[in-house]
Lab assay of single mutants.
Amino acid sequence: APRKVEMRRDPVLGFGFVAGSEKPVVVRSVTPGGPSEGKLIPGDQIVMINDEPVSAAPRERVIDLVRSCKESILLTVIQP
């Protein structure tokens, strides 16, 4: 079942996760003590960023979407 995860941007750590460059977009790592800790799990597949589906989106679009979130971000993720 999809999970909705909302995180506030940390001034130092950002959102505190690293996503892979393949499709679908998969969470590779979560920064300890960062905003994503306890919310995202490595292996989570990101299916939506805010209200935009990203399963088939180019990597550049995913990066732009994350960067455009100055304060908070809403991710919809699934464990494949």
Score class of each variant (00 low, 15 high):
residue 10 D to G: 03
residue 60 E to Y: 06
residue 3 R to P: 00
residue 34 G to P: 00
residue 70 K to P: 11
residue 69 C to V: 09
residue 29 S to F: 06
residue 37 E to H: 09
residue 34 G to W: 00
residue 11 P to D: 10
residue 46 I to L: 11
residue 75 L to W: 02
residue 53 P to Q: 12
residue 6 E to T: 14
residue 23 K to V: 07
residue 5 V to S: 02
residue 2 P to S: 12
residue 57 A to K: 10
residue 31 T to H: 13
residue 3 R to G: 02
residue 62 V to E: 01
residue 40 L to M: 06
residue 71 E to W: 05
residue 34 G to T: 10
residue 79 Q to R: 15
residue 69 C to H: 10
residue 1 A to T: 04
residue 69 C to Q: 12
residue 48 M to A: 15
residue 22 E to Q: 12
residue 58 P to W: 03
residue 7 M to V: 12
residue 73 I to V: 13
residue 14 G to D: 13
residue 72 S to W: 05
residue 36 S to R: 00
residue 22 E to K: 06
residue 80 P to V: 05
residue 75 L to D: 04
residue 44 D to A: 05
residue 3 R to H: 06
residue 66 V to N: 02
residue 28 R to P: 02
residue 71 E to G: 11
residue 76 T to L: 06
residue 33 G to K: 10
residue 8 R to L: 13
residue 48 M to W: 07
residue 14 G to E: 09
residue 77 V to N: 02
residue 17 F to R: 01
residue 59 R to K: 14
residue 43 G to C: 05
residue 48 M to T: 13
residue 39 K to F: 12
residue 52 E to M: 12
residue 3 R to E: 03
residue 21 S to E: 15
residue 32 P to K: 12
residue 3 R to T: 04
residue 58 P to A: 10
residue 37 E to F: 08
residue 26 V to R: 11
residue 8 R to D: 15
residue 21 S to I: 05
residue 35 P to S: 04
residue 44 D to L: 02
residue 44 D to W: 01
residue 72 S to R: 13
residue 65 L to R: 08
residue 43 G to H: 06
residue 7 M to F: 09
residue 25 V to K: 01
residue 37 E to R: 05
residue 16 G to R: 00
residue 30 V to A: 03
residue 20 G to D: 15
residue 36 S to F: 02
residue 60 E to H: 12
residue 50 N to R: 05
residue 30 V to R: 01
residue 77 V to S: 02
residue 10 D to A: 04
residue 43 G to V: 00
residue 52 E to N: 11
residue 42 P to T: 10
residue 40 L to K: 01
residue 19 A to D: 06
residue 76 T to M: 07
residue 73 I to F: 05
residue 21 S to A: 14
residue 42 P to D: 10
residue 40 L to D: 00
residue 14 G to K: 05
residue 6 E to D: 10
residue 25 V to G: 03
residue 11 P to W: 04
residue 79 Q to E: 13
residue 48 M to N: 08
residue 20 G to L: 08
residue 15 F to A: 02
residue 34 G to M: 02
residue 20 G to I: 11
residue 34 G to H: 03
residue 19 A to Q: 09
residue 51 D to W: 05
residue 69 C to T: 11
residue 42 P to M: 07
residue 24 P to E: 03
residue 25 V to M: 15
residue 64 D to R: 11
residue 34 G to D: 01
residue 12 V to N: 15
residue 15 F to Y: 11
residue 24 P to Y: 02
residue 32 P to E: 12
residue 30 V to K: 01
residue 3 R to F: 06
residue 15 F to Q: 02
residue 3 R to I: 08
residue 71 E to T: 11
residue 15 F to D: 01
residue 74 L to W: 13
residue 70 K to H: 08
residue 1 A to H: 15
residue 28 R to C: 07
residue 44 D to S: 05
residue 20 G to T: 10
residue 55 S to P: 12
residue 53 P to L: 14
residue 25 V to Q: 04
residue 74 L to P: 04
residue 33 G to E: 08
residue 31 T to N: 10
residue 36 S to H: 02
residue 3 R to M: 06
residue 69 C to S: 13
residue 21 S to H: 12
residue 11 P to A: 07
residue 28 R to S: 13
residue 45 Q to E: 12
residue 42 P to Q: 11
residue 71 E to L: 05
residue 48 M to K: 11
residue 61 R to N: 11
residue 51 D to M: 09
residue 58 P to V: 06
residue 27 V to I: 10
residue 41 I to W: 14
residue 59 R to V: 11
residue 57 A to V: 14
residue 1 A to G: 06
residue 77 V to P: 03
residue 69 C to M: 08
residue 71 E to S: 10
residue 68 S to G: 13
residue 77 V to I: 08
residue 76 T to D: 09
residue 15 F to P: 01
residue 24 P to L: 02
residue 10 D to Q: 04
